[in-house]
Design a protein around this nucleic acid. Structure first.
Lengths: 162, 162
DNA sequence: TTTTTATCCCAGTAAAATGGCCGGATTAAT
DNA sequence: ATTAATCCGGCCATTTTACTGGGATAAAAA
């Protein structure tokens, strides 16, 4: 089992989509800027999210991504599963052939742990996260930064002037 | 957060020690054979386990390792922590500086998850595992294999004859 | 006292995963 | 036609994983 930046990025990006639901498609460039995730890495993640029917894409100008289901119907576990190949803690994918074909000493422990983690993460939907106070606060901070400091525009005009 | 073979091996090896408690020091060679883990890899893991005061070593012939505390006083979480640098699911070690010094959108989610996992794993002691039926069954199988098939002895005598 | 059995310790390493860059193709709105 | 976006493939540096090997040290047994 691994829960690294990959899964964390995926959930963060999906939550960003959930926060901006109803505003039409959201581009990866927007998510990249707000969440500080590289654009090309986002592309890879969203390829997997799309294959797993979690998002739906619109190409061309004004395009981007939208949640395929409403945000109450998407839970954190399936987002991580989509990019990570599952939150399984066993080494044998629960097959029980951990030690040269037979079951290892700690097999059941890892099965229990997997169930525990999956139970926890699948009980939390994107809608649940959206309604959290801390998430709302961080989201507002990110919105303001986007409006008040369009630095990249200034920088690019300066750059073209020099 | 990562739970890979490393942490699984460490817990399996510690459980092996717990199962053979009271029989004097257990050598890593024995554990290696019973649990199918490479000897030199076990050495590395036990160096960390020793540094974290989980085992105590006896050098020389007849030597090996023993649990430093009784098996009811050692839980799974600290074993994994000892070899793995913690079961923390956040990317910022809970410091809250996930996104260029500030808190990221999903910070609290990963904190909650970490707490969930740690709570679960720290509630399970080696003694709890020893008393499980499935563990007892696997342990018996491993004992029998050791007694009935000393293949390595036969093979080495054949090898020296050829 | 020599040999053997074990822990110690350090260095290296192949393979995989991570996190990302780049170039170009395709689609569609302006 | 241009532009803005998704798509798609390959490439790449770095880190981690899981393991090998060599040798030093300690202590029991010969």
């Amino acid at each position: 089992m691994r829960l690294t930046t990959k899964g964390r990025y995926a959930v963060t990006a999906m939550l960003d989509l959930a926060l901006h639901e109803g505003k039409g498609p959201i581009s990866l460039a927007d998510i990249s800027e707000r969440q500080g995730i590289s654009l090309s890495y986002l592309e890879q993640l969203f390829a997997k999210l799309r294959r797993n029917d979690l998002v739906h894409s619109v190409r061309g100008p004004g395009g981007g991504y939208q949640l395929k289901r409403e945000r109450g119907q998407i839970n954190v576990a399936e987002v991580i599963d989509a990019v990570n190949e599952s939150v399984d803690a066993t080494g044998c994918q629960k097959s029980g052939s951990c030690q040269s074909g037979e079951i290892c000493l700690t097999h059941h422990l890892w099965c229990d742990l997997s169930e525990q983690i999956h139970g926890f993460l699948s009980s939390i939907s994107l809608a649940d996260l959206v309604h959290r106070n801390e998430v709302q606060e961080v989201a507002e901070r990110q919105e303001q930064r986007g409006r008040v400091h369009p630095e990249h525009l200034i920088v690019s005009s300066v750059a073209s002037a020099s």
